[in-house]
Design a protein around this nucleic acid. Structure first.
Lengths: 132, 132, 132, 132
DNA sequence: GTGGTCTAGACCACC
DNA sequence: GTGGTCTAGACCACG
């Protein structure tokens, strides 16, 4: 059963993409692997304090993406082959870095300052957000 | 008159927060200063290709935040005192860096690798997204 | 033991009402009579390829309707007195005819055409759906 | 603006397919034509006493079927070419007649009796259900 | 005012 | 207990 203990909800952003992103990042990190058992819709919705349907939507999109499999009445499992993981990794890492760089640039931060900030704040939110 | 030439719309995210964020980042960078003239709602909506109501909503929230002043029938001006700017700067920069760091950590990227990536991709999106 | 050989499942409709309807129509036709023995829940669920709980639900509702009697650990029997049968017959037949008539009328089919169609298609689905 | 005054909701059946069926039958009858204006989601939901989202789902599926067109901020219109109408007509009429025939057969009604019933009850529900 | 999306809760069939 | 679907209400962007 994969853990959601390091999941932190971001306000003002739709919840289901956050769930998708959490799973994707965990898969990219190798913390979530093929065959791992997903929490049930009810379990996860209770854990996150959201509606089961919101979780359902995330799971459905993950299934369409090929990251998990679902069968009625049975549990859902992760099913991520290496190629898919590598593809997601490429998309996700670049997108994250580029987005932060663009925002910081527009705020007048220069490259060295940004890199220094990143190093300094790296462990800032570590408690509770450690790689999965 | 402040410029929106570096504004790039992000799909799948409400537009009015994007406008607010653009102004906030410009103020933090010092590119937008107290007394600068805001474009009229009509002008900006035409420029961005969005509905006037969407711009109106952004202006109203910026006014509530204290970043601009609006008087019926008159132009709107930026009104950002040093304290407000500093407060926004602290929130935005830290939030941006922390968010990226958390996502990258969760993907299994380590601190050195992240800093290197940030330096390497710093100018990546510059063409067409300069000082975005 | 009453037979389910002519039962055909309709997709997209809950299964338990289909079971109830099958019994009701058989009773109205006289093919199912008071005293007839119902298949056990397990037997029927295996025969129809559905979950025992689904059959259980249908049996419970039939019992509430008064069409069958169940005693824990014992077989279930049909118990349809003449009055009940007549009441069900009136409801089902009229409802079926009225519903089809209304739909056909709304599609611009006239009465003669509808009656002709009914005669022509009467045996159409018979093969494989006989006495459905 | 096409009218829903003859629409009658059937209990125990999902609402959105009923809306779809009503439109399809009207198109088959020729009572609803290409270019006709659909009621807005809000208008129809208020009229039927259902949630706007339920209407939305029906409209969306009708759009996928090619029977109506929708554009954000603008009204929805019927767009049914002759071929599509003919295809729907074939499916709908046969399906309706076959379904009623099968049910009546299983209830022990014979063909002549069924045709007679259909003629007799043809106008039974006419008030309020007249072809569109 | 329009259509589109997100979150929510109840119900169904299945194991 | 599991996943899947339907109805519901609020919010968003657009004309």
């Amino acid at each position: 059963m994969i853990s959601f203990e390091h999941f932190r909800m971001e306000e003002g952003v739709p919840i289901y993409p956050q769930i998708i992103g959490y799973i994707e990042r965990g898969v990219v990190a190798g913390a979530i692997r093929s065959g791992d058992e997903m929490p049930s819709r009810r379990t996860l919705s209770a854990l996150l304090g959201v509606n089961p349907n919101t979780v359902q939507k995330a799971y459905r999109m993950l299934e369409e993406e090929g990251l998990i499999t679902s069968h009625t009445g049975a549990k859902s499992y992760v099913s991520a082959d290496a190629g898919l993981v590598e593809r997601i990794r490429g998309e996700l890492v670049e997108e994250t870095v580029r987005g932060a760089a663009a925002a910081l640039r527009q705020m007048g931060v220069d490259r060295d300052e940004a890199a220094a900030l990143l190093r300094r704040l790296w462990d800032a939110g570590k408690k509770g957000e450690e790689a999965r």
